[in-house]
């Protein structure tokens, strides 16, 4: 529960599978699965970033999809101006500019909105994070230059020198490498003294305050790190889909990210990845049978919430016959 020790076996297995399987499919001429895996890995980074504040910090942010959008627009907008002119200051196809921009703008947005959101708690917090995400949504809807509702086509992918994002396999391994780094970062943070305070504030905020911790600041820092990381994932998503629209920031997508974290098992290292994998598989499989795939998906979500406490990891633990005692193992 509190993230003891080295990365566990599950993490190693999952990463190894992610490295091997899509490559195999790719060389057997099936591009579809590599696409699927790329999406999985990018959403995985977003879920890992959300897990830092949701799983370890207990902050139920319902607006994380906004960072995916911000990150993607930070790739799309400079590329748009590089092609059509205007705004010379940011017009470029260079990934060395776009990706740091995505991280910086996301961090700034997280800082400003987080400073306000974190003054509140509980339901207020949930609703306000949703509202701020919706604000970004409407912001991009209102800008005609970047396609408004219709979205923006990213004509040129980020140029990063040695790495060629137009090559699907290179893009995939860049994303997978980023995922590993993101997981390592979150692992490091939650086990540090900072992480202990963050988790302590989740477990008992009053106690932490009475010990002398200004928990507001610790949460704000975690919130900014999480936002920046998700913005990075957004930059990758923009490069992957080569298209960005406000719809990507719709709150249903924030809900899906939360679903990944919770269903995979919040505050575990591998949970967010399992959750994203589960989501991608559910989406793919169900949508093949029916265009109404949201119906079984919604029912499943309801069933998990109503009948299974602890999400997937909880279910797995129970199957193994382990008691759900936090801190054990």
């Amino acid at each position: 529960m509190t993230g003891f020790g080295k990365p566990g076996l599950p993490v190693v297995v999952v990463v190894a599978l992610l490295a091997v399987l899509p490559t195999w499919f790719h060389f057997n001429g099936d591009a579809f699965y590599l696409d699927l895996a790329t999406r999985l890995v990018i959403l995985g980074i977003a879920a890992v970033s959300l897990n830092l504040i949701l799983g370890y910090g207990g902050l139920v942010s319902f607006g994380h999809a906004a960072y995916l959008g911000i990150g993607a627009y930070c790739v799309g907008i400079p590329a748009h101006h590089a092609l059509y002119g205007g705004l010379d200051a940011i017009a470029t196809n260079s990934g060395w500019f776009q990706i740091p921009l995505a991280v910086a703008v996301s961090a700034l947005f997280a800082l400003v909105t987080g400073a306000i959101c974190l003054r509140t708690k509980g339901v207020h917090f949930i609703m306000i994070t949703m509202a701020f995400a919706q604000m970004v949504y409407y912001f991009f809807v209102s800008i005609d230059e970047y396609g408004a509702d219709d979205g923006l086509v990213i004509d040129t992918r980020s140029e990063l020198g040695l790495i060629d994002f137009d090559n699907p396999l290179q893009l995939y391994f860049f994303c997978l490498g980023s995922l590993v780094v993101a997981m390592a970062l979150v692992h490091m943070i939650v086990n540090s003294r900072f992480g202990m305070v963050l988790q302590g504030a989740k477990g008992n905020n009053d106690r932490m305050v009475s010990l002398g911790y200004n928990t507001y600041l610790y949460r704000l820092v975690a919130y900014v790190i999480s936002g920046a990381m998700c913005g990075f994932a957004g930059a990758l998503l923009g490069n992957f889909t080569t298209f960005i629209s406000p719809e990507m920031m719709d709150w249903s997508h924030s809900g899906e990210l939360m679903f990944m974290v919770i269903l995979g098992g919040a505050s575990t290292a591998v949970g967010p990845i399992l959750g994203s994998a589960a989501f991608i598989i559910i989406e793919e499989v169900l949508s093949r049978f029916t265009i109404y795939w949201h119906l079984p998906f919604g029912l499943m979500l309801l069933a998990v919430v109503l009948f299974a406490r602890g999400g997937f990891s909880g279910i797995i633990d129970r199957l193994r016959g382990r008691k759900l005692l936090p801190g054990e193992g």
């Binding site: 529960m1 509190t2 202990m196 305070v197 988790q199 477990g203 106690r207 911790y213 936090p326 801190g327």
Partner: peptide
């Protein structure tokens, strides 16, 4: 009022760390 999901020593360590 303790941090229940954490171990006993983690709870006390947080107090030491606070100093």
């Amino acid at each position: 009022s303790l941090v229940m999901p954490m171990s006993v020593i983690d709870n006390v360590a947080l107090a030491v760390q606070a100093r």
